[in-house]
Amino acid sequence: MLQVENTLFTIVMLLYFAAMICYFLFIAVKKDGMAKTAIILQSAGLVLHTAALVCRGIGAGRLPLTNQYEFATAFAWGLSLVSLIFVIRFKFPVLGAFAAPVTFLVIGYAAMQSKEVKELMPALRSNWLGFHVSTAIIAYGAFGVSFVLGIIFLLRDRMRASGFLDSHIPDKEKLDIISYRSVSLGLLFLSFTIITGAIWAERAWGSYWSWDPKETWSLVTWIIYAAYLHLRIRRGWQGKAAAIFAVAGFICVMFTYIGVNTFLPGVHSYA
């Protein structure tokens, strides 16, 4: 099973890479057909990616969401899933073109991690862990999409020079509301992540919140997106300021994900 997963993982990386190239070509040669190809490639990649995760789960005999490699590949899956949904739902392949490199970077990061299947230490053997991590994947995927939308928002005026992009990038009001949808999805799931994490910590360590750096940074992330929601409501702050918060929020997500393990000590050091 793990062998199958390995092969699938390689194919998935190639498919995502091909999708990314097609998205780029779509912008470069301005042909809608390229966007369709990119979407098909990304969809195929996503289906095989799902299969890869299932194979790993069967091979390891547990939910495949417990170490750096497993979380990184699942994170890429979440990014790919949420971005694909947004691309299709809002007919917005330019979003795909900006999201694809982020997805590719994350799956590339996954490829560099050790794929070894290790037995779980007792504290990690909990159903709450499953809820905790799977909601985090969706939250991170959605925040990745808001990040990309924030970047598009901030670059929009510069990119408008070409008429082609003009017809493929929604106006600022619509961009703002699409970004609002992705932040809403992310914040809701991040709230689930934090609460299930707290319930799990309470059962495993006897304390539901202990200001461990990873906890603290997930709170910082949560606060930034809460501030984003309030900024949006204020007249005059909608748009640019909110877009900057959406970008800053994802930087916090990435710091929570990678930075905390690298630079700060804490109980999350295993994942």
Partner: peptide
């Protein structure tokens, strides 16, 4: 407005402390 200011201060305080 105060809420947004407080949220930003809280985020900065938490990150510094971490």
């Amino acid at each position: 407005k105060f809420a947004i200011i407080l949220l930003v201060i809280l985020a900065v305080a938490c990150s510094l402390a971490s």
